[in-house]
Nucleic acid binder design. Structure first.
Length: 140
DNA sequence: AACTTGACGAGGG
DNA sequence: CCCCTCGCCAAGT
């Protein structure tokens, strides 16, 4: 029997086929990114952790190459709280400017406070091991 | 088919 | 706190 590589579904009912060949591969990334509220951000690794096996920060970043203009792609940054689009998006500081327009404040090094702006979907809260509670943007 | 590059992340110095 | 290195997965050459 063609045992093939098998489907990685071995029991994971929440993950049909985390294969890049599957049309839903990119869709799952976009679906979450689309729900990020303005003024909030998510990291590539955070998305990868939510999507599960088959996804890594690298692959999520690659998927973003296919991001449509309608997608709030600017709300996805790296774990350092900085933008990594300098090598791919023009102008290099476009992403940071778009986020600043939403109220995200960056320091001189081009980094923002993730503890303050990081957002996690309620349905995935806790799985990312991030902050259990959403800090107020008012910064006590 | 192999090597290199890439919108990353964590760990060590 | 900043810099360097290793690991991951996929795509382009």
């Amino acid at each position: 029997m063609a045992n093939d590589r098998d489907r990685k579904v071995g029991g994971a009912q929440s993950q049909p086929e985390p294969d890049v060949n599957s049309p839903g591969y990119r869709a799952r990334v976009f679906d979450i990114v689309r729900r990020i509220p303005p003024g909030r951000v998510m990291t590539y690794g955070q998305l990868a952790a939510i999507l599960g096996e088959g996804y890594t920060a690298r692959t999520v970043g690659f998927v973003m190459h296919s991001a449509d203009d309608a997608l709030p792609w600017q709300r996805v940054i790296n774990a350092q709280g900085a933008c990594s689009t300098g090598r791919v998006i023009l102008p290099p500081d476009l992403q940071q400017r778009m986020l600043e327009a939403e109220g995200v404040q960056f320091d001189a090094r081009g980094r923002c406070d993730l503890a303050r702006y990081r957002w996690t979907p309620e349905e995935y809260a806790g799985e990312t091991g991030g902050d259990p509670e959403q800090p107020s943007l008012f910064g006590g």
